[in-house]
Design a protein around this nucleic acid. Structure first.
Lengths: 153, 153
DNA sequence: CTATTTGACTATCCCTGACTATTATAAATT
DNA sequence: AATTTATAATAGTCAGGGATAGTCAAATAG
């Protein structure tokens, strides 16, 4: 018996296909459709529509709130970028990260200014609120999310 | 999904563009136009046309009252960035952050792609390694550091 | 053990309306 | 004519309600 989360995952994926790569849903509505608690939708999204798997998720609360899921555009992504995203791993040091970013510029994946932004966002300087043992992990998350954002639209 | 406040915001912004940076409206008239209570106009203005976001608002009550909204005149992008950097507090929510970033695009301070990077780097999605009570603080740090990086040649 | 499911609690956003504050103008008073 | 008072026409404030989504940890399933 397929678990409910798998069913919801399939439903969303086929919806994304039908809608050319992007859907906007309402959490409660979807939960209602599948007779589950709303937070299960969060579970499905956080386990199956992650950055690593090629999805970009945004949401908003309050009246008219929504959750939007976008699939990255493989065409515009470029093999190198996709390769990087999948090869960055769960952790990355500041130094390694800077080397990556420099390479992106060399390969004309990003502009100089974009490189500045990326370095600024992944610098140890901004990690003061992150526990020491999680900084390389946080850095990898930020780096990958930034790269992923460039592959959309 | 179409939040009325967003629609009113867009309406005002396009009006401001058309009128070269300044508009004068009447609260009741505008409220009437959008079938909402007058105080919603205050809500829109106080959440979207603040000083920090580059707008200057004046008003007058009584007969012939009005609300005037002016876009701040920016001499240089650098000045504006410095202004923003110093006005972003120690904490910032994801949504407020997105509004800031949207404004940078409106003001031609940054490109669309740069906006994507900044949003990606300050999204709640990347804060999983940051303790909950420190996420807004971490976000503010990242945002300011990115902005700072743009002011340097 | 790991993955899933659940639900109680929290956070955020928008919209509303009752009440308040201010201003201009007309009317009344001096 | 000047001043004061009353009235109408605005705009501002704030707390509350409804509509969403997020988080986390306990319970359950596989």
């Amino acid at each position: 018996m397929a678990r409910l989360s798998d069913i919801i995952e399939e439903f969303l994926k086929s919806l994304i296909n039908k809608e050319q790569g992007a859907v906007e849903i309402q959490r409660n509505e979807l939960a209602n459709m599948f007779n589950c608690v709303p937070s299960q939708i969060n579970y499905v999204i956080s386990t199956r529509f992650t950055t690593d798997k090629g999805y970009y998720v945004e949401s908003r609360r309050g009246g008219g709130g929504y959750i939007s899921i976008k699939r990255i555009n493989i065409e515009s992504a470029g093999d190198y970028l996709m390769h990087i995203i999948s090869s960055v791993g769960d952790k990355i040091s500041q130094h390694t990260c800077e080397i990556f970013i420099k390479n992106f510029v060399d390969y004309d994946i990003i502009e100089e200014r974009e490189a500045k932004l990326m370095k600024a966002a992944t610098s140890d300087k901004v990690m003061t609120d992150v526990p020491l043992d999680k900084r390389d992990s946080a850095r990898a998350t930020i780096l990958k999310n930034m790269l992923m954002s460039l592959t959309i639209d």
